[in-house]
Amino acid sequence: MTALDFDIAHLLAGLLVLVSFMLLYQDRMFALLNVFALHAIALSLAVGWQAWIQRAPHLYVTAAIALTFKGLIIPVALHRIVVRLGIHRSVETVGGIGLTMLAGIGLVALSIVVMLPVTAVASSIGQEDLAFALSVVLLGLLMMVTRRNAVSQVVGFMSLENGLVLAATGARGMPLVVEISVGFSILIAFFVIGIFLFRIRERFDTVDLQALDMSRGEQE
């Protein structure tokens, strides 16, 4: 493995973090879904590159799963759900976008501060990759916390999972069985959440989570 290999690996992982930031400032629903697809494509590129430099063919399968499921099927399905349900097309955020971006920058800094010394003994590929992966996970969580709309929470959850896959592949790859089962569990989570969206919508005429709280007799 040459220095160039590392640089490209870091470039692709950094791209994933960048796309995570892009997810944070989207205020239109379809744009959000498109950026999410982009996120998955970036992930599959990063994983594919890891497969190449690690000579680990099973990682290609991982990359393919990421590309088909997360880059294609899930965004398209979410797209159709949004259309079918007539969900409000703008993304309601909690707190301003600027504030969220600042918090995101803080989280990336935090994950680098945490990860670099901790993984100093690990392999050099793992080091930065793990820091980037943790950033992606934290940004996904941040997105789930700062969005009111159920669809954007789903997107936050999926991007979080992308971060986990990145971390796993960076750490010398994970067994294919694990990867496939994680992929399937994500798919099942997506189904469940999708069904819930329909149910919530049926009952409350909206997928704004505030309506759920109101039905419990509480006000924000």
Binding site: L110, V114, L141, L142, V145, R148, L209, L212, D213
Partner: peptide
């Protein structure tokens, strides 16, 4: 609320990382 629970998980994670 659901979001608050998520926020608590998130805050706990960030605190531990700090």
């Amino acid at each position: 609320t659901i979001r608050r629970y998520l926020l608590m998980v998130f805050a706990a994670l960030v605190t531990l990382l700090v």
